[in-house]
């Protein structure tokens, strides 16, 4: 299992379920600071897996730079046009309840599943 860890967050990839899991609070400083996580996600996308799940159910906080990173990834998936993307969210977490629908607007075929 590949993993990127910070003081308050963890991002890891489970190959058997082709799922990228996010946990904790992500408040990194700007897009440059998010580059390692973005690269981590893009490497998985480049494997042409057919389906990738982003599991956000335990990501309690995400700042706007982090949301830009997620939307950039969704746009990359849309442009690649080979991968189905599934986003798993938790409606009890306010930012997810209010903002995850915006990812679907960027890519209408994105499947949004609530935990």
């Amino acid at each position: 299992m590949k993993e990127i860890k910070g003081e308050q967050y963890k991002v890891n990839y489970k190959q058997e379920s082709t799922t990228i899991n996010f946990e904790g609070s992500l408040r990194r400083m700007g897009m440059t600071d998010y580059q390692p996580i973005e690269n981590f996600m893009n490497e998985i996308l480049d494997q042409n897996l057919g389906e990738i799940t982003l599991d956000l159910c335990e990501l309690v906080f995400l700042n706007s730079a982090g949301f830009r990173m997620l939307s950039k990834f969704v746009i990359a998936v849309r442009k690649q046009a080979k991968t189905q993307i599934v986003v798993k969210g938790n409606q009890a977490i306010t930012w997810q309840n209010t903002s995850l629908k915006n990812l679907q607007k960027l890519m209408p075929s994105l499947i949004l599943k609530w935990d």
């Binding site: 897009m31 746009i75 960027l106």
Partner: peptide, 26 residues
Amino acid sequence: YLVQLERSAEAENAPGIGLITIINDY
């Protein structure tokens, strides 16, 4: 908001996504 997210993905300068989120989503 959607225009700025698309601009941001093209590495264009797309400021204010946090502020637009505050208006749009909150």
